[in-house]
Design a protein around this nucleic acid. Structure first.
Lengths: 185, 185
DNA sequence: ACCTGAACACCGTTCAAGT
DNA sequence: ACCTGAACACCGTTCAAGT
């Protein structure tokens, strides 16, 4: 994978942490565990980071960058009609396994403000993309704001309830988007 | 408060745990902390519970009961028109501070299946209340299912994103409910 | 039946010492 | 500049012993 130099960089640690996080969830993100993966002892970690919290912030930052890229790629579908854009984003959310990381991030966000800032930024970004698409659909700003809020919050809720609630099918999504696209009465 | 007997019951522990949880969040729920509150030593805890996990499950159970009661009270507004019922439930969600506990519960749910079951049950309950209200509004079951899902997921999302996203005003809620009540095209 | 207190394992954190 | 290894504090857990 990465060039296997004898010594590690901070980058190597955040990379390893993100991998661990995605593979085994937030509970596995421990210093001992990481050290084992990287073939190094505990003390080494503290040369690169002041704290577990600092590592988490770095991981969050990195995750945010990667997420932003992914989102921008999606938004690059700028030439696609807005309806199609929403469809792709929504379906992406539903079957993507990436919310296991997102859930972990939101957990951290509660205890460490740095992570909260990063998550908030990401939410804001998604919200704007969705809002813009709905405006392009021909709605005035007030309506767009409400409906975008509804959809984005529902997305967060879906990612968070690994719940017993029914998982929407593709047909459900189409029906839902028809609904969101409807002209205001 | 409670009758101050010398010896404690399991009930006293769950009560104390829930209080601690609401007051100081999930991070404060430690055995040492609880023991200090209850004026007792660590070992005592293990006479009542096998595990921290078992305590958490008990707390979750109790929270679920209390939540169910609250929900049933809300649903007892059965004689109110469905639209009004939805309005009350939604507003209740928005300004209620009780989701700090709910968030904690969902965090646990990820690591302990017992808690997950309890949270799932609660979600299901809310979903059914909302779905029924939308059916009463005159929609057929398919439409009701989609829209109820949207609203409930949005509710979960709202409770979870302590986010930078705009918090809906009362006017927003009315607009939103107008929207959800709209006849299908 | 309910609790104490000592003991242990595990994990985050520090730091002097090595290369 | 990057890492080791020993040490410490803290927390969950066990258990023999007390009342």
């Amino acid at each position: 994978m990465a060039p296997r130099t004898a010594r590690l960089s901070a980058q190597d640690w955040t990379r390893g942490a993100l991998d661990l996080l995605m593979a085994e969830g937030v509970a596995a993100l421990q210093i001992n565990r990481l050290c084992a993966d990287l073939g190094v002892t505990r003390g080494s970690f503290y040369w690169h980071f002041a704290d577990l919290t600092e590592l988490e912030a770095a991981v969050a930052e990195r995750w945010c960058e990667e997420t932003r890229e992914r989102l921008d790629q999606l938004a690059e579908l700028d030439r696609l009609p807005p309806r199609e854009r929403l469809r792709i984003m929504t379906l992406h959310l539903i079957d993507d396994a990436s919310w296991s990381v997102e859930r972990a991030l939101r957990e951290w966000a509660r205890s460490t403000p740095q992570v909260a800032a990063v998550v908030g930024e990401s939410d804001q970004h998604v919200f704007e993309l969705v809002e813009r698409a709905i405006v392009e659909l021909g709605h005035d700003p007030t309506v767009a704001r409400t409906r975008a809020g509804l959809l984005v919050y529902a997305g967060i809720g879906f990612a968070h309830g690994q719940s017993t609630l029914p998982k929407p099918t593709e047909a459900d999504v189409d029906q839902l988007l028809d609904f969101l696209a409807e002209p205001a009465s």
